[in-house]
Design a protein around this nucleic acid. Structure first.
Lengths: 325, 325
DNA sequence: CTGTTAGCGCATTCAC
DNA sequence: GTGAATGCGCTAACAG
């Protein structure tokens, strides 16, 4: 009984008929000695590393926790290790800059979760197995995104049902793919319902949210309900409302497009749209594994579970003049 | 001119005297063909992967952004790749559960940033190169932590200078190493200054912060200044203050032990202690690289830059009865 | 100073 | 059904 037999047993080779006792002897011996197959050597032989690389923007945005967690879980189920690379926001690089990970065979495929849309023309496109996560890449076929359309529908329908007709949206710049899709969706929804909508795009920081909300509030025809693209911007927006003495929800309804536990604890607990972050991460990893295995690709739209978390920041628009305080 | 020569040129072998033109020819050819050394094969030969694994708790706490960023930068400078593994809070595992990464040679060493202190006795200790980051491991020699003592000194001195004598602290459970060290530091500082201090330990969630703050406020001799261990707990604590109509800073001074941009934008902008997160991450990676190279180890205390960010949530304790609102 | 060669640890093809 | 042999891509120790 020798080397190769051991290898086969350890890899669970089906076409191997071995005496169960021998099999057991091998397994227990391996376990007892704490045998670990060398991933490098195995990778070299199989030309598969068993690792996936995920590139995410280095953000404080809590959505990444949910996404990463889903991805991690799916990876474990698929027998893969995930390495996460965080890209500083002040040093944004094209996705091709991460191909080296596959080319050097440190990973089998790439999960690209950087948020910026590339100019579809100039971009050469990745030549290694990959999936764009929460954004679309230059070509169709490798994109796994959430149903921002549905999310915006929840937002618009909620405030419309309360009686609002003039909406405002504070969000990041349109170069961010999710922002782009959300804006298009809101525009279409409002137009279909005969509602008006005003967008203010700004940096995804507290300061950006603050400035954008101020601009929105100082318009001649200010909206009566505002959606805010991220938790970060929300903090800024709430300060703007406070400064201008606009009370929520009496003078203004407020909805966050990021769900987070802290929303319940703010000065006014904030209604939000909760996205399927966990499912997004998991779906992307599964899609990538499929591509690494040579499977073809289809774009994926993750829609479940997508819900509105109703809290205290939304109400009917003020009709009379009941000034609180 | 053959294979090994190429290898040597590409690895920048000094002891190689070659005609510059040949050298150039090799380099340009390699570049033109997009040659990438196969990291697996190289690792196999050198028995060094060039990768470090960092295990962090899957928290929304923004401190990890700073730490990871510092670590990443130091890693790039050291020619290493960092793979980040996130450990779900609901599935806490001992550090030894991650040794397989080194044993399978997926990584050369481990950065352990999970927060829980192990029972020093039972724990076998890691047998692979490693560094504990922002916490202490079972033995001295491999720990890189921040100067929580100094941080607490900034907090206590700040409120003491404002005239506070009764302090409160809302923090996580003492099984978290940083919490343990902070508590010890505050106790010593207060005792030395003849001040009293009350601790409330709770889950590191908004809910936990809320409950702990309530308990603190309902004591017969409530403190006049409170320090809060994390941003998450801070949200809860602020809700408790709001509900009990305790105004900040008039009735209560408030300090966060996490610094974050959003603090400036809260209903009352919150004073905080800013920790050297970036430096911590970088120092830990450098320390780990040293250990991977066989170097001995010393515990490291990262103290710079450590500052108090003064905002509007701290003031002298109320003496008279000036009730604002 | 440069070319040849041996193996890093494993999976797998082939004879047996 | 099982053992021996080959090579994944690279580096380093050798000999030339």
């Amino acid at each position: 009984m020798h080397l190769s037999t051991v290898s086969r047993v350890l890899n669970g080779d089906q076409s191997l008929s071995i005496r169960p006792e021998t099999r057991d002897r091998i397994l227990t011996a391996a376990h007892r000695q704490g045998y670990r197959p060398n991933a490098m050597a195995r990778a070299l032989k199989r030309s598969r590393t068993g690792a996936l690389a995920m590139v995410v923007p280095l953000l404080r945005n809590p959505i990444w926790a949910g996404i990463q967690r889903g991805a991690l879980q799916a990876a474990v189920e698929g027998g893969q290790v995930v390495m996460i690379l965080e890209e500083p926001q002040d040093d944004v690089r094209p996705p091709t800059d991460y191909q080296y990970l596959v080319e050097e065979s440190r990973a089998d495929g790439l999960l690209i979760a950087t948020s910026r849309r590339e100019g579809a023309g100039r971009h050469r496109g990745l030549v290694v197995p990959h999936v764009y996560l929460n954004r679309r890449g230059p070509q169709p076929g490798n994109n796994v995104v959430m149903d921002e359309d549905m999310a915006m529908r929840l937002f618009v329908d909620h405030v419309a049902a309360l009686g609002h007709r003039r909406l405002g949206v504070v969000d990041g710049f349109k170069i961010i793919d999710t922002v782009h899709r959300r804006a298009a969706a809101v525009r279409a929804l409002c137009s279909a319902r005969g509602m008006s909508v005003t967008f203010e795009h700004a940096e995804d920081t507290e300061e950006g949210g603050y400035e954008a909300a101020r601009r929105l509030l100082q318009r001649s025809e200010a909206p009566t309900a505002i959606g805010v693209g991220s938790l970060t911007q929300l903090f800024g927006a709430m300060m703007a409302l406070r400064e201008l003495a606009v009370s929520v929800p009496d003078d203004m309804s407020l909805v966050s497009f990021d769900e987070d536990a802290c929303l319940r604890y703010l000065e006014v607990s904030v209604t939000s749209v909760s996205m399927p972050l966990h499912e997004l991460g998991a779906a992307a990893v599964r899609a990538l594994i499929e591509r690494v295995n040579g499977g073809a690709g289809e774009d994926l739209l993750v829609s479940n579970p997508l819900t509105l978390v109703q809290r205290a920041s939304t109400a009917a628009p003020r009709s009379g003049r009941r000034l609180r305080r």
